[in-house]
């Protein structure tokens, strides 16, 4: 708050009202509802529901399928985060180095940010088309008979590749702006102190980028967990079958298709706890970031 804030009574309340109203109806109500219905068992024919306590959670913990999906989600998240951060860092460092064509490279490397995840998935379908997809043909050239939507591992690979393709631009933008905010004098000091470019990168540039990197780590984990929904839904053409899926996709499938509201709500609550933990972790990191700047 500003030290000389206005003292008008009714105006701030009026200003806050739309925001508070919307989040009350579309945030707190559904969130509470989700927690509530995770303790109930919905009658499959829609005749009310009965309180079952923690049964829905117990079912989750005991479900081999759920554990399997959780494991896949973990692996998927690690791979997507690692590759999209790594590639973006490499490209950002190179884009920061060059002078000629810097603007063109920047544009070419960031436009995919604006592509919607399901559209990215749709493009993935073309690239991995069974009969003529360019990437299927490349795989074939090295003796890999790539079968999207049929083979579990192949489908998972496609999901990772498309998700990385979609996520590299965000990371690239942040890394590049992080690099460009390193003061010129620091770079010049490093230039005098260290002859090797690789040494300069690991000793000076990388530590100074670390805050950006930590921030992006959280962003990427959240992305892999939630925002990849559109990519996965399109790549499996809305028919999960035996295909790999993530935890969020499972919430959708069970709740919307399977009508298992209680189970789906319990899964939602598990995800909420996960996100909360991530956010707390992120706030800790932000506090640490202040030391740097």
């Amino acid at each position: 708050m500003k030290r000389a804030g206005f003292t008008t009574r009714w105006l701030p309340i009026l200003l806050l009202l739309p925001q508070l109203l919307i989040i009350a109806v579309f945030f707190y109500w559904p969130a509470v509802h989700a927690v509530q219905s995770s303790f109930f068992l919905q009658d499959p024919f829609g005749f009310g529901s009965s309180f079952v306590g923690l049964d829905n959670y117990r079912d989750l913990a005991g479900s081999g399928e759920y554990i399997k999906i959780a494991r896949f989600t973990l692996l998927f998240t690690v791979l997507v985060t690692f590759f999209s951060l790594g590639l973006a860092l490499l490209l950002a460092v190179k884009a920061d180095n060059v002078i000629r064509g810097a603007r063109s490279y920047r544009t070419l490397l960031m436009w995919v940010y604006a592509v919607a995840p399901p559209v990215a998935g749709f493009i993935g379908l073309l690239m991995f088309n069974q009969s003529w997809g360019p990437l299927t043909e490349m795989a074939r050239a090295i003796g890999w008979d790539f079968k999207l939507g049929v083979n579990f591992n192949d489908t998972a690979t496609a999901m990772v590749i498309v998700s990385v393709w979609k996520q590299v631009p965000v990371n690239f933008i942040f890394f590049l702006s992080g690099l460009q905010s390193i003061p010129k004098s620091v770079r010049e000091a490093a230039l005098i102190d260290n002859r090797s470019a690789v040494g300069r990168f690991w000793d000076v540039t990388f530590p100074l980028l670390a805050p950006t990197g930590f921030f992006l780590l959280i962003i990427n984990i959240t992305y892999a967990l939630f925002d990849t929904f559109g990519i996965i839904d399109t790549l499996v053409k809305g028919e999960p079958g035996n295909n790999p899926m993530t935890l969020v996709y499972k919430v959708y499938v069970d709740g919307f298709r399977g009508n298992d509201l209680g189970g789906s709500s319990a899964q939602s609550v598990v995800l909420m706890v996960l996100v909360l933990a991530l956010t707390v972790f992120q706030f800790r990191l932000i506090e640490r970031r202040i030391h740097y700047t």
Partner: peptide
């Protein structure tokens, strides 16, 4: 607090509402 939970995790109750 709304920054903490993306729409995806409360999608079904939101739909019901």
């Amino acid at each position: 607090t709304t920054l903490l939970l993306p729409l995806e995790v409360r999608i079904l109750p939101s739909y019901e509402i």
